[in-house]
Amino acid sequence: MGFFVEVLIGGLMAGVLYSLVALGFVLIFKASGVFNFAQGAMVLFAALTFVRLIDILKDTFAPIMLSLLITIALMVVLAMAVERLVLRPMVNQPGISLFMATLGIAYFLDGFGQTLWGSDIYTLDIGIPKEPLMLLETVFEGGVLVASEDLIATVVAGLLVVVLAIFFQRTRVGRALRAVADDHQAAQSIGIPLNYIWVVVWTVAGLVALVAGIIWGSKLGVQFSLSLIALKALPVLILGGFESVLGAIIGGLIIGAGEKLSEIYLGPYVGGGIEYWFAYMLALFFLLFRPQGLFGEVHIDRV
């Protein structure tokens, strides 16, 4: 029983990390209807920039804070560039063309980041403790072993969601964002500048990518494979629904737990390595019953 809970908790915490990436997808899809495949590349780019800047600035008084600020500034610039060079020329194009354009952004960022910063594996150490913790020793025999970095990641993700929720619900810009998400044309007609909103939303997605990049990077090292966690986040998205922040969180938890449990309990029977596709199959199975995801909006078609 203790082992089961350990696997379950490990899976849930991995799921939180998937949710972090999925959140970026959801934000952009909600506000601009763009299925942003570049989210994973943004995670890699942000993490690479951050880790290399720490290295460059290590003689200054506060390398981590400084490089964090510079990276944030860079993500804002990136958001503005995307809006100016990709979204604005392609306004009103079909979703599939925009999706392919974000694939182009992903290729560009992967290449650009690695041209600029090199493609080695960099260790990122910003003081997150890594000792495993023993929890619930009184409940189960032997207790439950939890990595403390995962715990911190969970707390950070929770905080991020709270901050985003406040931003969306309580601020002027957040309200404008929700208006745009609801109906582009109506929002524009009451004077909400769409271009500005897109910059804001891509910036927020960039910052979420930075947080995800820092957490993943300090866990696995900053390397090219960070770009591929976008693929891990996709089943989370279709499970939770493209338009729902809550869905991204819950979906992440379900996928994370399902993936780890299946790998441990089902994997040995079919040869192992099933975590590559299990999440997708799980999500596909859910979709057959709820085609718009768990928390997605139901679209009613009129002829």
Binding site: L85, Q93, A101, L103, G104, I105, Y107, G111, Q114, T115
Partner: peptide, 19 residues
């Protein structure tokens, strides 16, 4: 790396010019 970077940029360019 330059290759995938330019490839990505060209893809965006072509989609923007002639979707």
């Amino acid at each position: 790396h330059l290759e995938i970077m330019i490839f990505g940029a060209l893809i965006i360019f072509f989609l923007a010019v002639e979707p």
